[in-house]
Structures are given as structure tokens and as C-alpha cells.
Design a binder for these strands. Structure first.
Lengths: 158, 158
DNA sequence: TAGCTGGCTTTTGTTTCCCTAAGTCAGCGC
DNA sequence: GCGCTGACTTAGGGAAACAAAAGCCAGCTA
């Protein structure tokens, strides 16, 4: 980490994966729409109402999420209803679930109601609470102070 | 999940932990400043330059992060230099690391350079890559399709 | 004590995000 | 074929976030 920090100024943040991810989801409304999609919401006006956002904004953000490949838009038909479009998470969108779980976990710990969180996320198979944990590929749980940051192959001089 | 969705409209998102977390960190610059803090950056102008943000914005966001308890501001002194203030992560701020790791992971997978990510996060003790994983308290790894969402104690009627 | 440097603040202007209110359009039920 | 409903789009405007440029101030160094 010390070595890393010493050469920290030799490269730019142009290739930072966090910054790039935030260009796609770095905005409140987008993440809340993904929350709703993960809850199973599919219809346009449900998204707008449940997220608490106006229709023009919901339309613009949903369109962008489809363009970015996080949501899939496809026609569906309920009996006795006309054909509609629904929005469902793609694999790319589902892969953001750890971000949402980690945010919820932090919010539960530091910004929740006194009575507790409004939503519980559990493991469907066993009923236990689900958390986002840092683990290394060798299988260890990794506390924050055991993280090391190193320059990677995509490092660019600034 | 189906039961949950059926009653989804009976409560509001006023007590959503994700929304509350996003009121603190739901903005690109704030998360990038926390990224820098997690890399070990401490000085004001290093934050501004490395995040790529103007000084007024860096000053405002850092002040807010201190007010929110994610960063601690304290005086320090390098030999031969005058006293300065530095910004270091608090426990509350460190608890956001899973969010940053999850974002980086997603960015590495879907938005990284062809040559690879610019930064590697590893376990200091064993050198293996670190990831944010969903795990339940019973110890199982939880894939996205095994998540269940249930109403919690802080649920509010809308 | 005069200058230099780090760490901000002030000013001004632009862009992005979001709102409300109203309008459009397609298709099903009647 | 007429209205209704769901799914948007258009128009107009306010607030927040950001940038560039410049100024201020404290405390070392000389």
C-alpha cells in the first residue's frame, strides 16, 4: 500500500473502474430504479411511483438503463389486457446486486429507523440474512485493514 | 418474493436504507473521494487532483464527509513542514469499502480497459484477489437468484 | 520580515438533474 | 368508432453540482 501510494501520482484516474461504473450508475435515481427491478417491479408507472420520481425522469433513466444493457425491455401480455413493455434485469444488471446489498447494509447500520430496516434480504434456501462480505479468492474473510491496493495491468501514466 | 411484491404498494420508500445511504454517498464525487481516502490519500490538494475535481467542490464534499462522520479531520505535521490538516477514514467510512469493492468489481467486469483494470485489490496476508460476495449468516454463498426480499420491522404504510 | 506554499473561499457562469403540467398515441373493451 | 388506460413525450422552469479564475490567510523558510 505504501509503495502504491508513493507512485500514486504517476498515473491518472482515467482508467478507474469505480469511476467508469459511476458513469453508468453514479446517480441516485438510477440505483433506486435498479433496487425496484431487483424487487421484481416491471411496469413503467410502478417504477416511477415506487421510486418517487416523475414520469419524464423515469422514462429517461429507464431508457438509459436499457441502452447500457442493465435492463431488458420486452413486450408482455396479461390476460384481458393489451400488450405492454416490461423492464427486467439482465445478467449485467444483476451483477450490480452486491453494490445494492452493500449500500443497504451500510444504511441499515448507520441511517436506519430506530425500529429497524424496512426490508430484509435473506437467503431463499435457508432464511438467513444476506450480507456483502469481502472475501479473497483463497477463501478468507478480509477485514478492511487487511486490504492491499496494487497497480494493475491497465495502469496509465498521467 | 412474490408475497412481498404483492404488498409492495402498501408501504412507502421513506424508510429505505438504500435511499438513506444514497443521501450521504449518492454522488459521484463523494464516492471518488472515499476511494482516494481508502488508497491512503490524506491531503486536500491530493484529493482534488487525484479525483479530478475543482478545489471548491473538493472543499465542500470533504467538509460534508467530515460532518457525516465518514472522514476524520485532524492536524498532522511532517518534519520541516508546518502543521496541516489531514483527512482519514473513520470506521463508518471504512464500512463503505464493500460498496467501493463491489463497484470496482462491476467496473472491472463490464467497463474496464482491454488491457485490464488499473488497480488490483488483494488480501494483504495471502495476495489473493478480493471480491465483494453475497453470503448469508448461515455461511452459504448466495447467487443473485437465491435472494429473498421480505418486509422488515421498520416498514411503514404509505 | 518578506516571500512562499498549502489549504482553502469567493465569484461567476454552465451543465445536469429534477419538477409540474400538459399533450400524444396505441390498443382493448364496449 | 369512441372512450379509457398505460406508457410515454414535450415544454418550461428551478435547484444543485460543477468548473475556471482569482483572492485570502497562516505559518514556515530565508
Amino acid at each position: 500500500m505504501t509503495d502504491f501510494l508513493a507512485q500514486r501520482d504517476s498515473w491518472s484516474t482515467a482508467n478507474c473502474s469505480i469511476a467508469r461504473a459511476l458513469e453508468v450508475v453514479g446517480n441516485r435515481t438510477t440505483l433506486l430504479l435498479l433496487r425496484e427491478a431487483s424487487f421484481g417491479t416491471r411496469r413503467f408507472d410502478d417504477f416511477a411511483r415506487r421510486v418517487g420520481v416523475s414520469e419524464p425522469v423515469a422514462a429517461a433513466r429507464l431508457k438509459q438503463l436499457v441502452a447500457d444493457g442493465l435492463l431488458d425491455r420486452r413486450p408482455y401480455r396479461e390476460p384481458g389486457q393489451r400488450t405492454r413493455d416490461e423492464y427486467v434485469l439482465t445478467a449485467k444488471g444483476r451483477d450490480l446486486l452486491p453494490v445494492l446489498v452493500a449500500l443497504r447494509q451500510w444504511g441499515d447500520a448507520y441511517a436506519a429507523d430506530e425500529v429497524g430496516p424496512s426490508v430484509l434480504v435473506t437467503h431463499h434456501d435457508c432464511g438467513a440474512d444476506v450480507r456483502a462480505r469481502l472475501r479473497c479468492d483463497a477463501g478468507h474473510d478480509v477485514p478492511a485493514d487487511e486490504l492491499a491496493v496494487l497497480p494493475g495491468p491497465g495502469l496509465r501514466p498521467s
